[in-house]
């Protein structure tokens, strides 16, 4: 009985999310010129990242065992997953500000979960700039990679974009949940999300074993794109891990969703029982 009502409630979430998102899109499209400018500028700013990589390759042949095309694949997947996660959930990082000003209370008096309102808040289509740019890099990179494509590899690549986005999204949510305890900790989450994207756009083998262990077992950023890409490219995994470790990305994503969900609920419960 209780389960069927909570299931019914959960079924309403996508609709509620979409409704709020559409509202924000409409309001941002009220100023189309400004929207177009910010979209293009985001694309250009994020694009300079990859230009640096390309320039680097004018001096070297390969980097951490990756050719330029392979680097493009790694960069594209890192940027795409972060971009999609940021688009869908990035707004939640401002929760600390809402707690401080008491505006969180406004969400709590509405018949829509605070989480839905938090991730949809100020939904900005201009954040599509990064996924667009990432998509462009990916298309070019895939054209430069010589590889025996199989259906399995294709599926792994596509699924890894989704699971990678989920992992980044869960980190956004975990960071937001942490702000219920420490209001000014937004930057901490940023170091894992935006910082994580910086990290995962390079072959992790260049960073040394401790970093690889950390992003495998502690903050599983290596599952966002590195391990799936290694699988697709047929390269061996580091730390003596099996080459199929990239196939675990969906399981890691599910675990991250569970963790983020527990953390968010815990944070909200703490807020509602301390009122701070």
């Amino acid at each position: 009985m209780a389960e069927s009502t909570s299931l019914r409630r959960a079924m309403a979430w996508p609709g509620q999310y979409r409704m709020l998102v559409m509202m924000w899109i409409r309001s941002s499209l009220a100023y189309p010129a400004s929207f177009a400018l910010t979209l293009v500028s985001t694309m250009l700013i994020t694009g300079t990242d990859f230009v640096a990589v390309v320039l680097m390759f004018s001096h070297i042949e390969s980097f951490g065992g990756f050719s330029l095309g392979e680097m493009g694949l790694l960069y594209g997947t890192a940027s795409m997953t972060l971009g999609l996660a940021d688009l869908a959930t990035g707004s939640i990082e401002r929760i600390g500000q809402r707690i401080r000003t008491g505006e969180l209370d406004v969400w709590l008096i509405r018949p829509v979960p605070a989480f839905i309102q938090a991730v949809a808040d100020n939904f900005a289509l201009r954040r599509l700039g990064r996924p667009f740019q990432a998509g462009l890099v990916l298309v070019i990179a895939l054209g430069h990679i010589e590889l025996d494509w199989t259906v399995a590899k294709g599926i792994v690549l596509v699924v890894s974009m989704l699971t990678g986005s989920i992992i980044f999204g869960a980190i956004f949510v975990l960071g937001a949940a942490f702000q219920f305890i420490s209001i000014d900790s937004a930057e901490l989450a940023n170091s894992f999300t935006y910082g994580g994207q910086q990290l995962t756009q390079y072959p992790l083998s260049i960073f040394g074993k401790d970093i690889v262990r950390a992003v495998t077992f502690i903050v599983p950023l290596a599952f966002v794109n590195y391990y799936p890409v290694l699988f697709v490219l047929g390269k061996p995994a580091p730390l003596g891990l099996p080459s199929w470790i990239g196939l675990l990305a969906p399981a890691v994503a599910v675990a991250m969703i569970a963790l983020a969900s527990v953390a968010w609920r815990g944070g909200l419960r703490r807020y509602r029982s301390t009122g701070s």
Binding site: M23, S27, V106, I109, R110
Partner: peptide, 30 residues
């Protein structure tokens, strides 16, 4: 809380429950 939300209305004098950047009628529509 969410079930009750449909049956109560709240006005916080110091802060708005409306969306800052939206025209009033859009807030109402949401």
């Amino acid at each position: 809380r969410m079930k009750l939300a449909k049956r109560i209305g709240v006005v916080f004098g110091q802060r708005t429950t409306l969306w800052w950047d939206l025209p009033l009628k859009d807030s109402f529509a949401v």
